[in-house]
Design a protein around this nucleic acid. Structure first.
Length: 314
DNA sequence: GTAATTTGACCTCG
DNA sequence: CGAGGTCAAATTAC
């Protein structure tokens, strides 16, 4: 029991710590070295308090034996239902306990892009594939390869678009917290819906088209979208100077120019430009403050989180 | 032998 | 109850 108290204490302290960091972030959005984002901190804080509360509830109900992996677990096991009853069928190995405490994804904290390639420079491990209703292509589920060693929470879902464009609808969840940056030459997963994923690590490095097709689409504020071409250069300059990890076999400056042009030309529709960015209604990207080119989804890539456009805009 | 992917079962939520 | 998300054993690739 003493151990649990200590754990609860640590959990709450962590929450407090995250709250302090968030406060600093919100004050100036200054202390952002790329290793942490507002969304991460919020999630961390909420998680800490949820876990803490769960522990307390468990304590009240006399089951303070172990902190649940998810705050909802206490709800799921509430009442007279024992874990054995809850666990239908499978006799569940003693130590492995219940299988996941799956939760439906929130659309919050998700970033959606459409791209001709699923490659984004990170190393992803596929952990599931599912046929989705009213969709011909399966949805593939990926998490960061570094989850086990660094606890990186980044995940993404990839689904091929229905049309003939061979494009992918990619939804990112969470942010990379892993310290290592993966280069194209090291992460060569190319989706092949006919025969699964290609695991040839050289597939990309040997395929210029795949590399040059790689694009990332920043969530650009609407105010920014109407800016002049002079902004173009600034964006490119910013990106190319800040970009270390994406400089392999590709030209970030050129691509950001292209991205910018795509935004200039056709951000209104979901067709036409090959690289599009959809802000989720409740995503951080659409709610960032004025004058920012919000690139939160690229956090920790070596990009800075936000590019200030104040000078350009003025 | 190790790591990544596949795939069916399991779990949660609407 | 069905759909979406995840787990983990089996399979495959390197």
């Amino acid at each position: 029991m003493e151990k649990n108290k200590k754990r609860l204490n640590e959990t709450l302290i962590k929450g407090e710590d995250s709250a302090k960091k968030l406060q600093a972030l919100l004050c100036r959005r200054a202390y952002n070295d790329g290793s942490v984002s507002v969304e991460d901190l919020v999630m961390e804080i909420l998680g800490s308090f949820s876990r803490g509360l769960s522990m307390l509830r468990s304590c009240d109900s006399g089951e303070f034996a172990g902190a649940p992996a998810s705050p909802d677990m206490t709800l799921a096991t509430s009442g007279d239902q024992t874990p054995e009853v809850k666990n239908r069928k499978k006799p569940a190995p003693a130590l492995k306990e219940r299988r996941g405490c799956y939760k439906r994804r929130r659309t919050i904290d998700s970033r959606v892009i459409t791209s001709v390639t699923i490659e984004d420079g990170y190393a992803w491990r596929k952990y599931g594939q599912k046929m989705i209703l009213n969709s011909q292509s399966p949805r593939c589920y990926y998490r960061c390869t570094h989850k086990p060693d660094h606890g990186c929470k980044a995940q993404k879902q990839v689904q091929k678009l229905e049309d003939e464009s061979n494009m992918y609808h990619i939804t990112y969840f969470g942010h990379h917290t892993c310290p290592t940056l993966n280069n194209f030459s090291h992460s060569g997963v190319v989706l092949d819906f006919n025969g699964g994923a290609s695991k040839n690590p050289h597939s990309l490095s040997n395929s210029p088209s795949a590399i040059t097709n790689f694009q990332v689409q920043p969530s650009i504020k609407q105010e920014v979208e109407s800016k002049t071409q002079s902004t173009d250069v600034s964006v490119s300059d910013n990106v190319s100077s800040a970009n270390d990890g994406y400089s392999h076999n590709s030209s970030p400056a050129l691509e950001w120019n292209e991205i910018w042009q795509h935004n200039q030309l056709g951000s209104s529709g979901h067709e036409g430009p090959p690289f599009m960015w959809f802000d989720n209604e409740d995503s951080c990207a659409s709610t960032s403050s004025h004058g920012y080119l919000d690139m939160d989804f690229l956090n920790n890539d070596g990009f800075s989180s936000d590019f200030l456009f104040d000078e350009v805009l003025s």
